[in-house]
Design a binder for these strands. Sequence first.
RNA 1: GCGAAAGUGGCGGAAUUGGCAGACGCGCUGGACUUAGGAUCCAGUGGCCCAAAGCCGUGUGGGUUCGAGUCCCACCUUUCGCACCA
Length: 871
Amino acid sequence: MKSCCGWRTGLCQSAQAAGPPYTARSLMQYRPTDIEPKWQKAWADARVAEIDVAAPGDKLYMLNMFPYPSGDLHVGHGRNYILGDALYRYFRMQGRAALNPMGWDAFGLPAENAAIKRGIHPREWTLGNIGRMKAQFARWGILYDWSKEIASCEADYYRWNQWLFLQLYKRGLAYRGTAPVNWCPQDQTVLANEQVVDGRCERCGALVEQRELSQWFFKITEYADRLDAGLDTLEHWPEKVKLMQRNWIGRSLGADVDFQVPALGHALRIFTTRPDTIFGATFMVLAPEHPDVQQLIADHPDRAEIEAWIANVRNQSALERQEAGKEGRFTGKTAINPFTEEEIPIWLGNFVLPQYGTGAIMSVPAHDQRDFEFARQYGLPLRVVVGPPDGQPVDVAAMAEAFTFKDENGVIVNSGPIDGLPVPRAIERIIQIIEERGLGKGTVRYRLRDWLISRQRYWGTPIPMIYCDACGLQPVPEEQLPVRLPLDVPFTGREGNPLAKHEAFVNATCPQCSGAARRETDTMDTFVDSSWYFLRFVTPRDDEKIFDPALVNRWLPVDQYIGGIEHAILHLLYARFITRTLHDMGLLQFEEPFARLFNQGMIIKEGFKTPGGSWVPPAEVEWRDNKPYRGDTELTAEIGKMSKSRFNVVPPDELIERFGADTERVYTLFIAPPEKEAAWSDEGVIGAYRFLGRVWNMGAAILNAKVSGDVDPRVIRKMHQTIDAVTSRIERFEFNTAISALMEFSNVLGDAVNAGGGAELREAYETLLKLLHPFAPHATEELWSLFGNDGFILTAKWPVADRALMQEDEVVIAVQVNGKLRGQVEVAAPPEEASVWAAVDANEKIQTWLAGKTIVKKIYVPGKLVNVVVK
RNA sequence: GCGAAAGUGGCGGAAUUGGCAGACGCGCUGGACUUAGGAUCCAGUGGCCCAAAGCCGUGUGGGUUCGAGUCCCACCUUUCGCACCA
């Protein structure tokens, strides 16, 4: 272990070492820990990031997704905030009026779990974590407008959740419904479909059960078409996210068709995306949950067995149901295929989903793989109605799988009026016929389901509804908001929601009849909190209304939204939905809340694993022959997400203590393109530190040196090239190459300083400081002030490149012979073709490659390359 | 299974529209300054070769082209998303 001041000692001595001037004796040393807290305090004292939203200016709304206050942040979390801060500082220097707020997604399960485990109140635990995270943001040198801070667990925020709920309720967009829900026996709560991963609870991993419960829903499905169509307007969103949303919404074009069922006396309606194959529908399958099932099997001889089977299927989790494979039961009844007019058997099948379409399908086993498997299993007939374009007949008995022609390559056969049509045309035509004959209609269906917002949990927004025995369900009147979450509840960890046992909370007065009534004890999904918080940031202290429409319509949509890909679907979809509902209420002029979206990649790091699969702390790992061991056991290194269980978390404190926050920032941005996963390397950090040290020492040298004479024109050229490169790269989020451009410039500048300076060196150096500021804000502020500048470099003007001064005066042209590089020639800029060929002719080395050959072709790529093709 | 993205030195990664592959950094090698170095500075660093010349080289195999990391076809690998959605 090195001594506590090892790195400082090193720097001290480097100052005494002989060598180039800028490493020579200087009173100034780069000691980040000496300067960083000073500037953090100065920015905070000057409230540099506070903005008056009512003041005019070239507005820019930047937003990092507000975090769940889980406590300590590691360097992986830092990436998100550091890149946001770099952008923010850049835009400030561009003169933009930038709103950059931060808040806390402060309701949620972990706080409650902490209460149960450690006896600390969720609110106390949450506020404590918020304090620690704020301090960490400050240590990273990250600027937020803290005058706009919000925490969703506070009544002045969540009352507007309740207000929003009431507006949706009024419009029929919030409703109570009975639904089979995912129940986590461990957490004693209902889970949304998306919180169930592989049949297990996303949080605790327990196997999820199905239960029928009465729950609150938001009717997001009513907006499915608009949410889908709106994706096309989001030019500046990652394609990946749009695709994920599109798949999640799952828009399908098809037809609803009625099949008459004599035994029922009415028709069964099915949904299909392939109405063109209806002549091939040889049986029908209903979900076991289908409402007509009881009637269909009422007189079935094996009714008891079928009911037992249905009960069994219904009890299975989604995962178990799928793992069971395809199973079915024949109801004994038939339906009439409206086109062939044949009687076809009606089956029940575990693979038919009750929630999608009508819960009933027509089965076309020849052209749908699922129907094919089911038909083969139960010996049901196949009929081919789509063939290849060459008209070759298909041998049904030999089919190993369904033929699912979906495009022009399929041609309809055996189908009366649509025979001979290619599939897309056939679909259009058959829908026309279906509608003409009154058999059904063309429809659009969505995979998206309504948003289940009820949670049987304490630490969330109380749903503002009252149950009165006399008047029924009653909304809490708006003037009675907020319905406050009581703080004095016991946390036992048993039996669900402690709110339900809080007498003073539960007992309420009916707003209608003033009689005794009961309050709803469910709380809202925390995705409700995050579905509109970006609107609240503009006027966070307004206690009259949810937000100020005029100001919000000026500041939003958010110009740049930054966050993790894990929110690609739900958070963003819910936010887009709520924004539309507020638009429809006349409060917002826009339908899309986030104009630009950026998803940063994860920071990952290696961890060490025993053959048994347990993780080993790095302190216990020994390296022998380049392989990791613990004792005699050879370990495997596995790279992955930072987590305590893997012992691969890098906390920022030690890093900052040793190298400074600026080093962490520069390294984090330099490590990889920000949208990609990046492997953290403890060794790599030193490169960023050395770079900043060189910039620092160079500044000291320039300050101490007598600058005179002419500066090397290459320095000025490089400066303008660097301004241009850094600017365009920041705009394109290419922070890694922006920093490499700054390193190149600093190397050129360093050479010029070593060579004795020049009067314009100071200007070039101050330009370097400005370009570096978004990445290394503390060091650049310090150097800026050491150079005698007033005011923050943060508020200095971003440099502008002079294109004329960027031009090189000599151009190197690569020379190829038959496509292989054989030499280079230099010509004066701007290069002309004739002079390039003259230089090639004069180049002995290249001529040796041409000697004795016949020139077939000469190619000139302006300013870059020539290629001589010879035989 | 369906959909998407990505495969470049020992490592992280560069490379406008096809035009000098490996910028920048880590690591490594040698040197300087040193009692010392996990400090600092200088030089070198894709492979083959003592070196030069040259040859080879961007997952694999083909193709287009004067010219391919980049375009086309087929395949392999990895990661991510969805997963019976009719």
